[in-house]
């Protein structure tokens, strides 16, 4: 492929991604303003389901990793366990519910759904393994 063809193909691919990127950015901005960090604590009840709730929360919220550290730090201070926080942190960076339409558009519906679903369950596996090693080591 020559330079001109390569540039045109790259530009077309990127331009097709623009509306979805704009949509995602709008949703992230609205979510961050409408749902304050302090409200997250109410989701955790100190039960065995907390890691699942943590992974769910990490899956639907999106943003800079630093934000997830800030939220995690706040959750730990409020008594939420490290197992739950690890599931939350891992899901935050590996699962993307907001980005799912774009992932399906570019990488295929089955790939996107399989990847996000497995990443959700694997965030729990990562959390349990991390805590097991931390306890053992």
């Amino acid at each position: 492929m020559n330079l001109k063809e390569a540039v045109i193909k790259a530009a077309k691919s990127l331009l097709r991604a623009v509306p979805t990127i704009v949509g995602i950015l709008a949703l992230i901005s609205l979510f961050n303003v409408l749902v304050p960090i302090s409200s997250y604590k109410f989701l955790f009840r100190g039960t065995i389901f907390d890691p699942v709730t943590g992974a769910l929360l990490g899956s639907v919220i999106t943003g800079n990793p630093v934000t997830s550290y800030l939220i995690s730090g706040s959750l730990i201070k409020q008594g939420v366990g490290l197992l739950t926080v690890t599931a939350f942190l891992t899901a935050w960076v590996t699962v993307g519910v907001v980005q799912l339409p774009m992932e399906m558009q570019f990488l295929g519906r089955k790939f996107a759904i399989s990847r996000n679903l497995s990443a959700f369950f694997l965030s729990l596996v990562v959390a349990f393994l991390t805590m097991a090693i931390m306890t053992w080591a």
Binding site: P19, T20, V22, G23, I24, A26, L27, P101, Q105
Partner: peptide, 11 residues
């Protein structure tokens, strides 16, 4: 994607 963008912005 365009409908998604307009709905998101309309919010």
């Amino acid at each position: 994607p365009w409908i998604f963008m307009f709905i998101s912005l309309f919010l």
